[in-house]
Design a protein around this nucleic acid. Sequence first.
DNA 1: GCTTCCACTTGACAAAAATCAAGAACATTT
DNA 2: AAATGTTCTTGATTTTTGTCAAGTGGAAGC
Lengths: 187, 187
Amino acid sequence: MTELEQYVNSYFGVAEAGELAEISSLFKPEMIKKGDYFLLTGKAADRLSFIQTGILRVFVETANKEVTQWISTKGSFITDLSGFIFEKPARWTIQALTDTVLFTIKREDYKKIGVLMPKWHELEKLFIARCFITIEDRIFTHLSMTAEERYALFFEQNKSLFNEVPLQYIASMLGMTPETLSRIRKK
Amino acid sequence: MTELEQYVNSYFGVAEAGELAEISSLFKPEMIKKGDYFLLTGKAADRLSFIQTGILRVFVETANKEVTQWISTKGSFITDLSGFIFEKPARWTIQALTDTVLFTIKREDYKKIGVLMPKWHELEKLFIARCFITIEDRIFTHLSMTAEERYALFFEQNKSLFNEVPLQYIASMLGMTPETLSRIRKK
DNA sequence: GCTTCCACTTGACAAAAATCAAGAACATTT
DNA sequence: AAATGTTCTTGATTTTTGTCAAGTGGAAGC
């Protein structure tokens, strides 16, 4: 089983090998150089990708500052959900923080999966529900924790990320300034 | 068309009248008195309800304080998603802030919808995706706005709620103390 | 090897928000 | 109407976090 197949299976729980191979074959390799963009705010978000290697940052420009919404790493899927599912302009800009290898599926091919495999929509539903539950937890951290507590929790769960990406992006993602993160880390 | 049917239709986009009636018939009326609980953290969350009238508060007890995750009003659905979909113990406690009338569907009946109507899973997927996108926006408000800005935005979109529920719960939901909310409102 | 560019750190200060404590306003019950 | 209980407000203070500005350190390019 390829790594992609393993992940499709673990995220979506597709049991049968033939189906898994069929789905995976719709994903095509794609390379992005460090600093280049996977997606720009306002553009069509017509693809979903699996991160084979590399790190991507999901962010958006506001009047005052750039806000990093999320940092995605090897072994996860990436897209702008609103754009991909509802065919709206992308809300987020997505940039590679390292050289990145993706397996990408176009929206039109993605739609074929649901036709070929009727239970796919249910698996998708479960996948998105898990995403919802995860982000619900994240809201909770903002309602109930200080910056320091949010840092401690995130650091515990993502130690290696701190060597791999600029800390300012992690700070933004945690809802604090780079200075505050720096001071918390000094302790 | 009943109000329930209208909402099922507007949330899930079920086009056909017969299907809509069939789905709606699986929901049964349920009353909850002000102050009573719809769900307790740790218990089985085996039902999904549509709020016909009334207001419910989704919260959880932590070591120091009670954190209100969300306040749900007339015309929306309520459940503990993790508990309902994945059959896990409920993460949230849900309490009625006013006398409330619900239309409730049990998990076992809910599962029947997917069998009777194959496209249901896709509609569900789209519904949950919209929930995800909404909560993603909410994360963004915590990453990029001050307490005052979050208040202003929420007030703009939910003016009437401020006369209907204790402000302390709204404060918690917005990630600030009741005192801070009170001071912001004085302006 | 020097320069340039980032990213990060540090300090001083300002602003935002939390905490603690008291009291006022309001609704509910008796 | 009085009593009770809850919610909200206000003031004083502390803590947390942000802002601004300067400086350090390292990596990439020349």
